[in-house]
Design a protein around this nucleic acid. Structure first.
Lengths: 211, 211
DNA sequence: GTAGAACCGTACCGTACGGTACGCCTCTGC
DNA sequence: GCAGAGGCGTACCGTACGGTACGGTTCTAC
């Protein structure tokens, strides 16, 4: 029996993963260059196999995005002993991770692909990207925030709003500029930006207003 | 070869603007449906005329985006008599305008088009959109911020950073979610969001920490 | 009136690409 | 060994679309 990995109820054989890797590579190299012929050639498989496995071009695209997006794994933060310092450190780590992912070539490519897809009355890819990007981070961050509130380290009414503000403070205009091809962001200092965003977040939501 | 067209100098005849309107309508209605044949039919002109006027498909796309983007005009804020109330009101107005524009159908369409374009190693449309979107707002807002700093109502080192934080607080994840086709944002309350973002901005950058 | 420019409508061409068909090879189970 | 399945490579088909050509019509200038 071939070794398979589980990706949201969907399993891909190693051979299929090689195909998806080829597809992703083509996407990254040349955004719109994902032709079935190109994937088949790159992966050394026949087009017939592609259609058999993924149905059609959209299926291949969806599988590629879903498979890759699911690979993004946020670090698990220890919630057991939460003090001000640990909380801030965790939040800052999330900010760093978020910026690192969003400015990465793969994230930019997948988001562009999903946006392009959404421009054609198809929002399935957009949903996948959202689900595995911002929303995944939100799911991880939410318990941290609420633990912080329980420990009277944070103050907010809605964890949803707190997260969205956090997202805005961290990402600012970076993502949209990356998506639009702005190259003047190359020298972005993720460390410093993450720290600044964390400071601002705590200035807004920290319970201790004197810090 | 694309023509270089300066929108600011009214170089489009009314007939040409009618063509661009048709192109924009097609873009909005059906993101990827901008075929030369469709534009020609919609605008009741011949394809030959399209190519004569705009060079090629990219030229038509560029002219459409540039022409439309340049139509976005931010309100001019009176800077002469600046007090805390007027400043806050101006900033909040900008937040409202920014959200209104970015959540609008046309902005979403143009940004999607530019992102799609950027996925094909072409960043011209992205540059145009950035230039006429965030950067245009920044140019308008920057003197307001600096006037606020001169009046000791605001405190910041870099107006660039202040603006980008303002952008993040206002836009948060709204734009990327719109671009990705998220429909759960329909009930967004622009008024309330703009006010909240303004409050947060002044909490971070206001010189009077007691307000 | 006539010449010429601008432009509309349509037909046409070439290509790229999604999708299908088929011949051949390899590998597995019996 | 043999049959069948799975899969590779290639040829092929249909269509959509970018781009061009051309005849016919309207408008303008003189």
């Amino acid at each position: 029996m071939a070794l398979t990995i589980k990706v949201n109820e969907e399993t891909f054989t190693p051979r299929q993963q090689a195909v998806l890797t080829a597809a992703l590579d083509l996407l990254v190299e040349n955004g719109d260059g994902l032709t079935m012929t190109a994937v088949a050639r790159r992966a050394s498989c026949s087009k017939e196999t592609l259609y058999k496995w993924f149905g059609d071009r959209d299926g291949l695209l969806t599988a590629t995005v879903q498979w890759q997006a699911a690979k993004v794994r946020m670090p698990v933060v220890d919630r057991s002993h939460l003090n001000a310092k640990a909380l801030r450190s965790s939040v800052e780590q999330f900010a760093r991770d978020l910026l690192t992912v969003l400015t990465g070539e793969i994230s930019v490519t997948l988001n562009r692909t999903a946006v392009t897809h959404a421009a054609q009355e198809k929002d399935s890819l957009g949903t996948i990207v959202l689900e595995n990007g911002p929303l995944a981070i939100r799911r991880r961050l939410k318990p941290i925030f609420e633990a912080g509130r329980d420990a009277r380290l944070l103050r907010f009414d809605s964890s949803e709003d707190a997260f969205r503000t956090f997202f805005g403070l961290v990402v600012r205009d970076v993502q949209i500029r990356m998506l639009l091809g702005d190259k003047t962001l190359a020298q972005t200092n993720i460390e410093a930006d993450a720290k600044a965003a964390t400071d601002q977040f705590f200035a807004l939501y920290g319970a201790d207003t004197t810090q």
